[in-house]
Amino acid sequence: MAESTTQTQSVDPTTLDGFEQLTAIVEGRLPAAPIATTLGFAGMSVPERGSAIFELDPELRHYNPIGSVHGGVYATLLDSACGCAVHSTLAVGEGYTSLDLNVKFLRAVTVDSGRLRAVGTVLQRGRRTALAEAKLYDARGRLVAHATSSCMIFS
């Protein structure tokens, strides 16, 4: 994944639709969001419009005091997958913001869980709002968390 400090080609994101913007980030032509560097995201992909995938290798720095990955790390991965799934549907000149994020934690995650994979999908995209969901899986393919997010679309 391209880091925000990586040298990027001259691309004007205002001339691209949401899918093209995210593709430019994946290809390193636009910088990644700083949160990707802060948390150490291991990868991002946008396989098609309405879908986004984020990956992270759990580390001890992600732990909470009870000895597992902090729920905020789960939530950030899920929020990123939901939000970027919606982002990938935007037309040139459109923006969005999250209105809510509802997360269900299903299983504890530790460094032994292996690479986490958050898969986001748009469930419904209207003119003014979108509903997305994301599922978070561990390296063995077990569902560890689920989220839904409502987003407001604006010009």
Rank of each mutant, 00 (worst) to 15 (best):
L77Q: 09
A139T: 00
P65A: 05
A2I: 06
D112Y: 08
A2E: 01
R125H: 15
L56V: 10
P58C: 14
D138E: 04
T15F: 05
V86L: 09
A130N: 02
F154T: 04
A118D: 01
T8N: 09
V26F: 05
V111W: 01
A2F: 01
S88V: 14
T14E: 00
V92E: 06
S88W: 14
A52S: 10
Y74A: 05
Q9R: 15
T89C: 15
E59F: 07
V109F: 10
R49E: 14
A91C: 13
K104D: 13
A81G: 12
E133P: 14
L39F: 11
G93H: 02
T37A: 11
I153F: 00
E27S: 11
F19P: 04
K104N: 15
G50N: 08
A24E: 06
A139Y: 04
L22G: 04
N64F: 12
Q7S: 09
T121R: 15
L39W: 02
A36V: 03
L101F: 09
A42P: 01
G18C: 10
T8M: 01
S45A: 12
A75Y: 12
E133V: 09
T37H: 07
D100N: 14
V69N: 12
F54M: 02
C84D: 10
K135V: 12
A24G: 03
R61A: 10
S150L: 01
I53M: 11
S113C: 10
A147D: 00
S150Q: 05
N64G: 12
S150N: 04
A130T: 01
D57Q: 14
L77I: 07
Q21K: 07
A130R: 03
S51W: 00
G50F: 07
F154C: 00
A108I: 07
V119C: 13
R125S: 13
A134F: 13
V103M: 13
T97P: 03
V92N: 06
A81I: 12
S80Y: 02
R29L: 00
K135G: 12
A147Q: 01
D112S: 15
L56K: 11
S80D: 06
S51P: 02
Y137F: 15
A147C: 05
F154V: 00
G18N: 07
A81T: 13
A145Y: 02
V69L: 03
G93W: 06
A118G: 01
M44L: 15
M152C: 08
K104Q: 15
L116A: 11
G67I: 10
A85Q: 05
T8F: 03
V69W: 08
L22T: 06
E59N: 10
A108K: 15
F54W: 14
Y96W: 12
A36P: 04
A147P: 06
R140C: 08
G120I: 07
G43Y: 07
G83R: 06
